[in-house]
């Protein structure tokens, strides 16, 4: 369990930047927790405050009952060994082989040689790099480098893994495979994973919960399904819009009819709600766009529909949909 209590951080410089403005956030153990936000929102700064790579100016950061910002350098060094970190640009040691890179944190912690060999072997297998152990990072692809980064981060058996844009430097296929690996690790090792990203897809694929950041504050936190279907903050809505909604041709938008954005989650995805709507309310429904996606835990769908009918039929329709637990939003106000 990780808790931020009113954490502030300002970077002094020519122009001082108030990167964290009173963050309160708790992150439960054992889940994959996403932190999303635009560039400069303060995501990296927040996560770097967990292992004190960045020291908060004020506020408290608790990790499993330990107040991180009160630790002495020695205690901090020890507790960092229980927190793994994965980086966007991998940050592997070019002078070391893959084996030596994965062994690095074990060497730092002064593990006996025999244990190191054993542990590295297990980790290499976990991330699928057994045949690359004697190579150097310079000879690996981006995805392979990140697998080394993940194996290295897991070497000392941390209870917590921090991933700062771990897939942002990778192509889409490699991204998927690295995300699968993280999900698999979360399930097998039961460790908490925090992923920072600016891509909704990452949240969609692997996260249980998500926090949306903007301007140094957390705007919204919740289970991914809930935030995706009923975003409460403007920041969450705008991130989702960019992710889901198509650009409708302007001819479609100016027909004068109401266009609704319907969001379905869980069981609703399987029900013929639109057919029932047409029968019950007598409106004509023109489907403009639709998609169904799989969130980590639930199916999730979006429809853009145009309602053709009287004003009264229109309000009836919206009421009917809401009764059926479909999220309704007027797309063209």
């Amino acid at each position: 369990m990780i808790e931020f209590k009113n954490v502030h951080k300002t970077f002094e410089g020519r122009a001082s930047v108030h990167a964290l403005r009173g963050v309160d956030l708790s992150i439960p153990s054992g889940e994959i927790f996403g932190i999303i936000g635009q560039s400069g929102a303060g995501k990296s700064t927040l996560v770097r405050c967990i292992n004190m790579l960045e020291r908060p100016d004020s506020g408290e950061v608790w990790v499993d009952g330990v107040l991180m910002n009160s630790l002495s350098p020695k205690e901090l060094s020890k507790s960092r060994k229980r927190i793994g970190m994965v980086f966007q640009h991998f940050n592997l040691l070019n002078s070391r082989t893959v084996f030596q890179n994965i062994a690095f944190p074990l060497e730092l912690a002064r593990y006996p040689k025999k244990d190191i060999v054993e542990r590295v072997t297990v980790l290499a297998e976990l991330v699928g790099l057994t045949d690359k152990l004697q190579g150097y990072p310079g000879q690996l692809s981006g995805g392979q480098k990140q697998r080394v980064g993940i194996a290295r981060a897991l070497a000392t058996q941390p209870r917590l893994l921090l991933c700062d844009e771990a897939t942002s430097a990778l192509d889409p296929d490699t991204t998927i495979s690295v995300l699968r690996l993280l999900k698999d690790i979360n399930e097998r090792l039961k460790l908490t994973i925090i992923v920072i990203t600016h891509e909704m897809q990452v949240i969609q694929e692997i996260c249980d919960q998500v926090a949306v950041m903007e301007n140094g504050t957390v705007q919204e936190t919740g289970r991914v399904v809930d935030v995706f279907t009923r975003p409460r903050s403007r920041a969450a809505r705008s991130m989702l819009q960019g992710f889901w909604d198509p650009k409708l041709p302007s001819a479609l938008q100016s027909t004068g009819n109401t266009i609704l954005r319907l969001t379905f989650a869980n069981q609703k995805v399987h029900q013929p709600v639109i057919a029932q709507l047409v029968r019950t309310c007598g409106v004509d429904v023109n489907i403009l766009y639709g998609r169904i996606d799989q969130l980590k835990t639930a199916p999730f769908g979006i429809l853009l529909v145009e309602l053709v009918g009287s004003n009264e039929q229109r309000s009836q329709s919206i009421a009917f949909l809401q009764e059926n637990q479909v999220e309704v939003e007027v797309f063209n106000p």
């Binding site: 292992n51 060094s77 690095f104 730092l108």
Partner: peptide, 13 residues
């Protein structure tokens, strides 16, 4: 690379 040094710091070096 500063990132590599930071990675080592994050491991408690």
């Amino acid at each position: 690379d500063a990132g590599v040094i930071e990675a080592a710091e994050s491991m408690g070096a």
